[in-house]
Write a protein that binds this DNA or RNA. Sequence first.
RNA 1: GGGCGAAUAGCUCAGUCUGGUCCAGAGCGCCUGCCUUACAAGCAGGAGGUCGCAGGUUCGAAUCCUGCUUCGCCCACCA
Length: 888
Amino acid sequence: MSQKLDSRYDPAGIEAPMYRRWEEAGLFHVPAGQVERPYVISIPPPNVTGALHMGHGLNHTIQDVLIRWRRMQGFDAVWVPGTDHAGIATQNVVERELAKNGVSRWDLGREAFVEKVWDWVHEYGGQILEQQRAIGDSCDWERTRFTLDDGLSRAVREVFVRLYDKGLIYRGEYIINWCPRCRTALANEEVEHRDEPGKLYHIRYPSAVEGGQDLVVATTRPETMLGDTAVAVHPEDPRHAARVGQDLLLPLVGRLLPVIADEYVDLEFGTGALKVTPAHDPNDFEIGERHELPRVNVLEAEGTISGEAPEAYRGLDRFEARERIVEDLEAGGFLVEIEDHLHAVGHCYRCDTIIEPWLSEQWFVRMRPLAEPGLAAYREGRLRFHPEHFGKKYEHWMENIRDWCISRQLWWGHRIPVWYCEACGSEIVSRDDPTECPHCHGELVQDPDVLDTWFSSALWPFSTVGWPEETADLEALYPTDTLVTASEIIFFWVARMVMMGLEFMGELPFADVVINGTVRDHRGRRMAKSLGNGIDPLEVVERFGADAMRYTILSGASMGTDIQLNYQDLDAAFAVGRNFANKIWNAARFALPYLTEEDLATSPEDRELELADRWILSRFQSTAHEVTEALEAFRLHDAAAAVYQFGWGELADWYIELAKLRLGGARGDASRAAASTTLAHMLDGWMRLLHPIMPFVSEAIATRHPGRSEEDTIVRGPWPEPPDSWEDDAAEAAFAGLQELVGQVRNLRAAYGIDPSRQLTVLVRGAPPGLAGAMAAEGEGISRLARAVFQGADGLPAGPGAHAVLQSGAELFLPLADVVDVERELGRLEKELLRLESLLESSRARLDSPAFVEKAPAAVVEREREKQTSLAERRRLLVEKRRALGEG
RNA sequence: GGGCGAAUAGCUCAGUCUGGUCCAGAGCGCCUGCCUUACAAGCAGGAGGUCGCAGGUUCGAAUCCUGCUUCGCCCACCA
C-alpha cells in the first residue's frame, strides 16, 4: 500500500529463478577437455541421506566465495560436488526405518537390505544437492559424484589391491573398538572419549597355593574378569616379588591364573596388581602376547556374555552381567571396595553406544610408510593450513599414527575385494569378481565385511575426476587447489587424502587447507539435533535470502573461529546480512535511474572529474586491492568487511549524498556526466567485489544497469582491477578534511540541540589550501550534508557562538547568539582543551626523552614533532577563543 | 597426563605474526535527535574499554618474553 514496502529488498522472488538461469546457462560448468586455467575445489561430500545444516552453510559459503572469485578472475573454476555413502550413518537411518515395522536387517538378509538402502538413497538421497542450490553453491553439477558410483568403486578396488600387493594392507586378530549396537568395528578416530563418573571395583583374587597370599586387583569393568587369564605385577615391585609364578583362583569362574611380571604395570596404581584380560583390553592383549596367555573372549558381538563364561552369566547383557557379578562377588566375600572413579569412556561416533575393546579379525592399513611423505610435505611447506596452527594437529597425529582398521561389519559400503577358497584355503585379492579359485577351481566366498567409509573418501580428489582411468579431467583437475573443511575432520579425511594422493598420484591433492570454525548457538553450544538448537539454512534463505545468510556468516567469524547464531531469534541473528542486502538494494534503487548506457562505456578519466569523483575512485582502487589480498590469504571476513565499509560507509554515506545535486543537473552537464559515469563504475565495481559473497543481489543490480540485461551476467567476471591512476592521496586527504568539517558542524548542532532543519552559517578561518579548495569544489554538497552555509573568514567575530578547531588548524565558528550560552561553550572548550593538553603532555614527554630521540627511527621522531606542533597550534587557538569568550 | 587455542566496549568479534600512524576499532545493544522523497531493515550525534592478572624486555607494549588465572578444543591404554 505504501512505497515503504517496495523499498525493501525481497530476495525470495529473485534468488531461485536467478540460480536456475545460471545453471541452465552452464555458467558453473567447464566441459572436460576445456579446462585450461584450473582452479579446483573438491567438496567435502555430505552424507547422501543428510540435510543441509548451518555447518554446511559456513563451509559452503567459504568454498563458494573462493570459487566465484576465481571464476570472475578468469580461472576455469570447477567445484566438484557429490555425496558420501556414509556407511554406518546411512545404514542406521534405514535400519531405524525398518525397525518401525519391527524388521531388522538380519530379517531381510544382506542382499535385500542393501537393495532397501539403495531404494532409500534413490528416493530421499541427494536432497542436499538441491538445498545447496538454494544457498547459491556454484558447483559444476555435471560432475556430481557419489562414493558408491561405479567409477569411484573401481578406484576403491584399485587402491585396495595395490596397497595389498605392496604389503600395506593386512588382516589380523587384534583388539579393536567394537560397537555392540552397530555390530561393527570402528577406527580409533571413530571413538569419542568422554570423562564419565564410574566405579572402581577392588576384587580379591584368592591364592590357589596352600598358604599363599591373596591379591587385590581393581577394575572399572568387573564383567571382564570372566575373561581374565593372568594377574600381572611389576617385576621390581617388592610387595609382590615372591608371588610371581604362583597361581591365583579366579572368583566365580574357578580358573587358575598365573601371577606374571610385566613392566607395563604401574607401581603407583592401586595395589600394584593388574588383572589381565587379553581379549578385552588393548594393553592386556599386548601383555598376553608377551606372556603367551590364552585369550578368553567372553562377549558376543551384540554385547552379551558368551559361552566362554560360566553358565550363570551367559546371554546376559554386559551391563546386567556387571551388576550380577558385583552381587556375586560381594556374596562370596571377594569384593573389597567400590570407589567412585572418573574415567574416559569411549562412545560410538555414530550412535553413542559405549564401545567395547574386543578381539576380532579385521583388515588394517599399515600407515607409517604412507604417513612419511605426508609429514614431509607439511614440514617442507608444500602443504599449508589456514589458520596455521591447525598444521600442528596434523603433524602430531601423523607422527603418532597407528594402523587403520578399515573393515566394518556392515552391509552398506564397498565390499572388501577379498575371496577365500573353501577348498584350498587361498586368499584372492582381485580388481574383478573372480568366479572360482585360480589355484584349485574351488568355490570362493567373498569376505563379508565392507570398507570404512573414509577409505573411499580418502580417494575423493582423484576418484571423482576419473582415476584410475587417465581422463582429461584427471589431467586437468588434479591436484585441486584449496580444501575447506572443519578441524575435526583433519584426521578422518584431510590426512588420509594427503597420504592417498601422494601414494597414488605422486602429488598432494591440494596445497592449502582452510579450516572453518563451528557454528554454535548464542549460548556457545554446538548446534545439534539432540539439543534442538539448530537453524535450518533453508528457512533462513526463505526469510532473509541466501545473500543475507552468507554475509552474516562471513561477518560473524574470522578465519577458523567459531560463529554464534541465536536460533531463537532469527531476525536478530541475520539482521546484519539482511540490512546490508537492503542497503545495497536501495543504493542501487537510487542510483540506477540516473545512469545511462554511455556511463559504463565511458572511462571516468574521460570526464571532468571533481574532488568527490577522484576521492571515491581512489577509495575503490584501494578497496579492490584490499579485497583481493584478503581473498588470496583466505581472510574472507576481512574481504566482507572491506566491501561493507566501502559500499555503505563511503559510497552510500558520502559519495551518493554529495552526488545528488550533481546528478540532478544543478552543477551543469559536465559535472552531471562526471558524477553519473563515476557512480556507474562504482556501483558496478562494488557489485563485482560483492558478488562472490552475495551473488544474487549483486547480479540483480549489475544486470539492471542501463543497457544491460540478464544476459550480461557478472558470474564470469571480470573481477575489478582498477588502474593505479585512480589512486589519489591528495584527493583522499582533501576529502577527509571535508568529512571532518561536516562532522564538526553536526557535532555542534547536536551538542547545542539545534533544530536539524535550521540552516546554519559557518565561518571558517585559516583553512589550508587543500581544505579551502575542497570547500570551494564541494560547497553545495557539504552545505546539504551539514545544513549549513560555509563562509571563509579572515577574522572571527567575538560574539557568542560555538567554536571548533580542526586537525589542520583551521578554525570553525558558528555565530549562534540565541542558543549558545557562554558558560556552556566555555565548558566545552575546556573539555577539548584538556584532551589536547593530555595528548600534548604525552607527546612532549616522549620528545623530551633523549633516549627516544636517539633510538627511535627518524621518521617516528619526525612524525612526533609534527604532531606536537599541530597540537600546540590547536591548543593555542583554543586558549585564545576561551579568553575572547571569557572577556566578551 | 600431554598438546593447541582463546581472554580487548553490555554482547559478538577485528587488531597481536611484522611494537610507534591505536590515550584501541566494527556490528549489535544503549542514550539523544530526525519520516532530510534510495533505504526507519534508515539518517545524524553520543556514552561506553585498568586490552584477563603479575612481572620482564624496550626510548616506546593490546602487540614481544616469563609465570599465573579462567574458559574451550584435541590427543592419551593408567587398570
